[in-house]
Amino acid sequence: MEIQEYYQNNAIYCGVYKYVRGLIRGFCPANLEKLFLEENVGGFDLLFRTIFGILAILALAAGIVKRSPWKWIVALVAFTGLYSSILRHCTPYAIPGISTAKKKRA
């Protein structure tokens, strides 16, 4: 009886523990290649990132963005957009397992 009461009283804790343990297991070194190198950007998302990256670079080159903090934000948008579209990888997409790329046929 004591064991059953323990698990009933700690059911939420056990569920959270299993969830966190599963997340940690997802980031083990064996999965780092998948986390950082797998292609997960494609289609409209790829086009969207490329266009916004190019527009941000053009805005910086044309001097449209005048204030210094905004220049850094626009430069970050440009770098992130072009970097993720060239590599076809987005690490924030990889963490929850989102992919907009077409799956390769084996």
Rank of each mutant, 00 (worst) to 15 (best):
F79M: 10
P96Y: 07
A11W: 12
A75F: 09
G22A: 03
Q8M: 13
K34L: 14
A101S: 10
I86W: 06
L32T: 10
L46M: 06
T91F: 14
L37D: 08
L76A: 12
I57S: 04
W72I: 13
G63L: 03
F79W: 05
I51L: 13
G63D: 07
P69E: 05
I54V: 14
A75H: 00
A30I: 08
E33C: 14
N40C: 01
R25G: 08
Y6G: 00
I86H: 00
S84W: 08
F79V: 08
T80H: 10
I95W: 05
K71P: 02
R25L: 13
N31P: 05
E38C: 12
T50G: 06
L87I: 08
E38R: 13
A59W: 00
F79S: 07
I12N: 11
N31F: 01
E39A: 12
C90L: 01
W72E: 12
Y6L: 14
N40V: 00
K34S: 15
R25S: 15
G97F: 01
D45I: 15
V20R: 03
F27A: 09
L23M: 12
A61M: 13
H89S: 01
A106D: 12
K71N: 05
S68N: 12
K102I: 02
R25E: 11
L46C: 08
W70C: 07
V74D: 01
R25A: 13
A78Y: 01
Y6A: 09
T80S: 15
I86P: 06
G97D: 05
V74H: 00
E39I: 12
G63M: 09
L60D: 04
T80G: 11
G22S: 10
I51S: 05
C14E: 15
S85A: 09
K102D: 07
F44S: 06
R21M: 08
T80I: 13
N10S: 07
F44W: 11
I24N: 09
L23H: 12
A61W: 10
I64H: 13
N40G: 01
C28W: 15
Y13C: 06
R67H: 14
